[in-house]
Amino acid sequence: MFYDTRIGDHGLPHNPFKACVVPRPIGWITSVNEAGQVNLAPYSFFNGVAGDPPVVMFAPGGRKADGPPDGSKDSLANVERMKEFVCNVVTWDLREAMNQTSAPAPAGVDEAAVVGLEMLPSTLVKPPRVKASPIHMECRYLQTVDLPSDDPSARNAVVFGQVIGIHIDESVLSDGLVDMAKLKPIARLGYMDYTRVDEVFAMSRPSWPISQDAAD
């Protein structure tokens, strides 16, 4: 099948786009507003985009009905104003709590407190960390890129942040490496589906020229 995304006539029960870009890691973003109120929200349009220095992005698309006039979600508004955020890695054990924090709570609500998550102070930034998450990335805001939006009343933004500090619980390390079998991260698939990292395999990067044996 083929469909023109500008028209959207795919003829399927649900838009398949998000099921075609998988799996997507989940950025569980902690931010604070000017009053110090904490916001915790998950975003599946999230990833690392650079390594030197380390940079991550998350895309808080969609509209928040009771938010600013431009429809910005709390995470976007907070990060642009306060210039900091924390990304907490979502694991299998945290899946239900993460999902609960995706509810469209009114502005100013502390989702972490509502779902009973204990928070820890960060080292370099003001937003706190989710204690139960084994990896936290403290980030300094770099910039926002506004993309075209199909909803003229809402921003379609991508936020970039430089990772300036990383916390890793030693319980997820093996021989000095982050052990995915211990970490058990989850990722977003299409629709309401998720996946858990259960199988890991390694492949060495080939040298050049590539041998026919390697290609086969």
Rank of each mutant, 00 (worst) to 15 (best):
Y3P: 10
R6L: 14
G8Q: 04
H10I: 03
H10Y: 09
L12H: 07
H14V: 15
N15W: 10
P16A: 06
R24T: 02
I26W: 04
G27A: 11
T30S: 15
S31Y: 03
V32C: 14
A35D: 15
G36M: 13
G36D: 12
Q37N: 14
N39C: 10
L40G: 01
P42E: 03
P42K: 03
S44F: 03
S44P: 01
F45R: 10
F45A: 13
G51P: 02
P53S: 14
V55S: 07
V56M: 05
F58T: 07
G62N: 06
G62I: 05
G62E: 06
D66W: 01
P68I: 04
P69A: 12
D70M: 00
G71V: 04
K73L: 11
L76N: 06
V79I: 15
E80M: 11
R81C: 06
E84V: 03
V86D: 03
T91Q: 04
W92E: 14
L94Y: 05
L94D: 01
E96G: 00
A97W: 04
M98N: 01
N99D: 09
S102A: 15
P104A: 10
P104Q: 10
P104S: 10
A107S: 13
G108K: 01
V109M: 06
D110M: 06
A112Q: 06
V114W: 09
V115Q: 01
G116R: 02
L117V: 08
M119A: 08
S122G: 11
K126N: 12
R129W: 01
R129H: 03
S133E: 04
I135F: 08
I135W: 05
C139Q: 04
R140A: 10
R140Q: 14
Y141V: 08
Y141W: 03
Y141C: 07
Y141F: 15
Q143N: 14
D146G: 08
P148Q: 06
A154L: 10
A154C: 11
N156P: 10
N156G: 10
V158F: 02
G161W: 03
Q162P: 10
I164L: 07
I166P: 06
H167Q: 11
H167C: 08
D169I: 10
D169H: 12
E170G: 08
S171L: 05
L173P: 04
L173W: 02
S174E: 13
G176W: 02
V178Y: 04
V178W: 00
K182H: 01
K182C: 08
P185K: 09
P185A: 04
I186K: 02
I186A: 07
A187S: 13
L189T: 12
G190F: 06
Y191Q: 12
D193S: 14
E199G: 13
V200F: 01
F201T: 15
F201Q: 15
M203S: 13
P206C: 13
W208E: 09
I210T: 13
Q212L: 14
Q212M: 13
D213T: 12
D213N: 13
D216T: 13
